[in-house]
């Protein structure tokens, strides 16, 4: 183990707001988001890269924030579940999860939302197969997935051409 570890200064834009912080290199992005910035919407489920509860978007791409260091996000834009609502209004995807019972305990929901939001940004009209593939890295212990898929399908069906 090295004797002295210097903290590293990073600049990260989270949900449109710029943050400059000094972090230990080993700080995980998810800890940075939750502990440094107090944005606890992003969850830690497994902490072993398997459940997807910690999914955020890094420069638009879904990533597991438990499997990244905060220093790797230096200079990047991060979108978390808190960044989905606008002017106090839930994002259509969030409304749809609520309307279609796409959640029960809600633990997986932030990750499910960030993964499906990334899909819809990339492909506004995905078919069922594409939706399943997009959330294949996200585990839900409650819903059985059907209503999550329905919620995403409903948004896709309503999306403008």
């Amino acid at each position: 183990m090295p004797d002295a570890i210097n903290k590293v200064t990073i600049d990260v834009t989270v949900n449109g707001r710029k943050f400059r912080r000094q972090v230990e290199p080993r700080m995980l992005l998810v800890e940075f988001i939750r502990e440094e910035l107090g944005l606890t919407g992003t969850h830690i489920g497994c902490d072993t890269s398997y459940c997807g509860a910690c999914t955020v978007q890094l420069d638009g791409a879904p990533v597991k924030s438990c499997t990244m260091f905060a220093v790797q996000a230096d200079g990047c834009e991060v979108l978390t579940v808190e960044g989905l609502e606008k002017d106090g209004q839930l994002h259509p995807l969030q409304k749809s999860f609520s309307e279609h019972h796409g959640l029960q305990c809600g633990f997986c929901t932030p990750g499910m939302l960030m993964a499906s939001h990334a899909l819809l940004t990339d492909n506004p009209h995905p078919d069922r197969h594409a939706i399943k593939k997009a959330i294949a890295g996200n585990v839900c212990r409650c819903t059985g997935y059907q209503n999550i898929i329905k919620a995403v399908e409903a948004v896709a069906a309503g999306a403008k051409e």
């Binding site: 879904p62 597991k64 990334a118 890295g137």
Partner: peptide, 9 residues
């Protein structure tokens, strides 16, 4: 390979 998140990185 893996899932979309792992494939991003």
């Amino acid at each position: 390979i893996a899932d979309v998140q792992v494939r991003s990185r």
